[in-house]
C-alpha cells in the first residue's frame, strides 16, 4: 500500500487519535521504521493529540480513590513475609488443615463454570453488582507479568480467582491458592489450568480471610507455603 499524502495524513491522524484500524496501525509502524520523516509526523500528531488530554475542565478525584488504589497495591509488600507466617503456622498444632473433599471439588468445578460464564457475559461489571465484589490481584517480582482478579461473593461463601501470565510450575509442582487470616495462610487447593494459559481457583469459607495469594508448591503440599508469592490481593 502506498497512500497519497492526504491519505497518509488521515491515517496518521487516526493513529494518533487511537481510532486507526489494526491494519493501518501495522502499516504505519512499518513505514515509520523505514522512514524517519513518517516517524516524526506520527510523533508530532501524537503531541498535538496529547494537548486534548489536558484540554479538559479540572476535576479533583475523591480522596477515597487514592486510599483504595494504595490498598490495592499494598498486598504485594504485606504478603512478602509469608515465611514468617509459615513459622507461626508450623508452631500451631491446632491449626485446621484444609480438607478438599470430593463433594467440594465437584461443587467448585460447577461454580467455576457458572461464575466464569457469568463474568464473561457481563464483562468487568462485578463492581456494580451488590452481591459480588471484584478485586485486581497485585503481581510480585516473582511473576511480573501476572494479572487477574478475585471475584468475591459478598456473603463470604466463595471467591473465584482467575489469573493469567503466571510462570510455569516445574514437574510435580502446581500453583497453589492460599487464603490468609491475619497473615496465617491456609491452602485453598491448586489452581486449575484453563485453555489459553489462564488459571482458575476457588476458595470457600472466607470467614476472617483478608488476603489471598498464590505460590508454586510441590503437588500434595497443603501445610504451608514454601514458595515466594506470585500474586496477592486484599479481599
Amino acid at each position: 500500500m502506498n497512500p497519497d499524502a492526504n491519505d497518509l495524513q488521515d491515517r496518521i491522524a487516526a493513529l494518533a487519535l487511537g481510532i486507526a484500524s489494526d491494519e493501518d496501525r501495522a502499516m504505519l509502524e512499518e513505514l515509520a521504521l523505514a522512514d524517519p520523516s513518517i516517524s516524526r509526523e506520527i510523533e508530532a500528531a501524537r503531541a498535538a493529540v496529547d494537548v486534548m488530554a489536558h484540554d479538559v475542565p479540572v476535576c479533583e478525584p475523591p480522596p477515597e480513590l487514592r486510599a483504595r488504589l494504595l490498598a490495592e497495591v499494598r498486598p504485594v509488600a504485606s504478603v512478602i513475609p509469608l515465611s514468617s507466617a509459615r513459622d507461626r503456622v508450623a508452631g500451631d498444632p491446632n491449626r485446621r488443615r484444609w480438607a478438599w473433599p470430593a463433594v467440594a471439588a465437584v461443587l467448585a468445578m460447577l461454580v467455576v463454570g457458572l461464575v466464569g460464564w457469568n463474568l464473561t457475559l457481563r464483562g468487568d461489571t462485578a463492581p456494580g453488582d451488590p452481591d459480588v465484589a471484584s478485586v485486581a490481584v497485585a503481581a510480585t517480582a516473582s511473576a511480573p507479568g501476572a494479572t487477574g482478579r478475585v471475584v468475591i461473593v459478598k456473603d463470604g461463601t466463595l471467591a473465584v480467582v482467575t489469573l493469567d501470565g503466571l510462570p510455569a510450575a516445574g514437574p510435580g509442582e502446581g500453583h497453589e491458592l492460599w487464603v490468609l487470616r491475619a497473615g496465617v495462610p491456609t491452602s485453598a487447593g491448586f489452581l486449575r489450568p484453563l485453555p489459553g494459559g489462564a488459571f482458575v481457583g476457588v476458595a470457600t469459607d472466607l470467614d476472617g480471610v483478608d488476603q489471598v495469594a498464590v505460590t508454586i508448591e510441590p503437588r500434595g503440599n497443603t501445610a504451608a507455603p514454601t514458595g515466594a508469592p506470585l500474586v496477592a490481593a486484599n479481599i
Binding site: 488521515d10 487516526a14 487519535l17 516524526r40 498535538a48 493529540v49 486534548m52
Partner: peptide, 20 residues
Amino acid sequence: GRIRLGLHGLRARVGEPGGG
C-alpha cells in the same frame, strides 16, 4: 479531512514535538 485539518491546526498551536 476535518480531522486532518483540525490536527494540523492544533499542531500549529502547540508547535512541533516537545513544544506542547
